[in-house]
Nucleic acid binder design. Sequence first.
DNA 1: ACCTGAACACCGTTCAAGT
DNA 2: ACCTGAACACCGTTCAAGT
Lengths: 184, 184
Amino acid sequence: MALDREQVVDAAWHILQTYGLGDLSMRRLARELGVQPGALYWHVANKQELLAVLAQRMVAPLSTSSTGAPTTGASPAGTSPAVADDDATLLIARFRSAVLAVRDGADVVSVAHALDPSGMQPTPLLTAALTRAGMDPAPAETAALTLVRFTLGSVTAQQTRESMDLPTATMAAEFEAGVRAILA
Amino acid sequence: MALDREQVVDAAWHILQTYGLGDLSMRRLARELGVQPGALYWHVANKQELLAVLAQRMVAPLSTSSTGAPTTGASPAGTSPAVADDDATLLIARFRSAVLAVRDGADVVSVAHALDPSGMQPTPLLTAALTRAGMDPAPAETAALTLVRFTLGSVTAQQTRESMDLPTATMAAEFEAGVRAILA
DNA sequence: ACCTGAACACCGTTCAAGT
DNA sequence: ACCTGAACACCGTTCAAGT
């Protein structure tokens, strides 16, 4: 009953989650799906496109959940700038968790984010949160980029260590300290 | 007259500089040196070790030059905290330049830095500069890690874009804004 | 001590030909 | 429309055997 693009992406997602980027080869993926390697190229243009789709899937939960907050209309009377700043802190923490949860997630998301820095989540959501917190749009966007790049640098380091069974006990606290410094 | 380790590293360095990480294979390196691939394994344990040596070579200039400043004895009477803070700004900018100058430099240095975050340059030099600027040792080390991880995140993004011929005009300014935010 | 030859177990991608 | 078969041009690493 004919392979489709979704099955290809799902199988790739499973390999990435379970075995990491080093094991996510087009040949391995084809084997897992019971087809010849060439068959995959009917459903995806190439490996790069496949990785871009996986990156989108990793950050998708950020857009679907809370903190997408009031963009239209004025902020509710009770919403102070401090609360919106907490929104940014929460948002970047959720981004980190999402990327950290997938093996080699940072490597995959880093490429996607480099291609579209201001369009890809969590950048637009962060920029909105920081604007709500009282920043002008331009510095808000710059601060959002700083947060995302710092986070990707941190998670890349952590996942590299995890892949080598080195300790990572201090890294969550270091991440939080970095976020505080950037938003201070 | 027998290959030695230095020739292997020099040739690898040349390939990395000129063609990037994608072209730095053990087989290609062997071809360039006029030997069989297996011969390389007499001089280096594996590709990972070779990349670690290249990472060291990229950051070596940082240790050999200025801003290594007075560690022993009290600061000169005229040296205010503000000056030492400028030292940190200068140091992280020089780190960025060194990594940015080598194709895919951020990928190579990121791994080395993940393995030894506090030992590898520029972390110890940065920590020293920030301590001179009046910070306590613990927060100084955390701030140094934040700076280095943000910088590696930024340069990774920029080099990804460069490898795809996408514009990078805004990225130097975004880097500087990030550094200011972190040190503010 | 240092290197070759040859193998092992892989890659991503293309494309004529089949159904 | 969708897939196979087969090829092209590669990988990193090991190791007996040669000099």
